[in-house]
Design a binder for these strands. Structure first.
Length: 107
DNA sequence: TGATTGACAGCGT
DNA sequence: CACGCTGCCAATC
């Protein structure tokens, strides 16, 4: 188990529940590298564990879809999220409703 | 070892 | 509101 930034990112993404989405920046922040949002995208593109890493649940800071190397590209990504119950607003996701909340450990 | 890349973010126009 | 440029970071070639 390496504490590589990469592995950590994957772990975080795997924790994203269905019907929710997380932003690159947010994941990067959870991975202790708030500025490394771009790197997240690179790991996603490589996507070493497609079934385990729902990269389609990772979106831009605005709630807009970016990238996606899958078949259909952005369109497919949008469809996938819609299918999971994410509320879209034109071409953007309603973060107010669908943004994933990283483990609320305390409280 | 060094340089380039890239699925972002933020600010300015 | 839409588009463009710059800054940042780790991985990959």
């Amino acid at each position: 188990m390496q504490d590589n930034f990469k592995s950590r990112v994957y772990k975080i993404i795997r924790k994203i529940p269905i019907g929710k989405v997380a932003t690159y920046s947010q994941i990067a922040s959870l991975a202790d590298h708030p500025k490394a949002a771009r790197v997240i995208g690179q790991f996603m593109k490589h996507n070493p564990d497609i079934p385990a890493t729902p990269c389609h649940r990772v979106i831009g800071s605005d709630g807009s879809l970016t990238g996606y190397s899958g078949n259909g590209g952005i369109k497919a990504k949008r469809q996938l999220l819609l299918r999971e119950g994410v509320t879209f607003h034109n071409n953007k996701i309603n973060l107010k409703v669908s943004l994933w909340k990283p483990d609320i450990t305390h409280l």
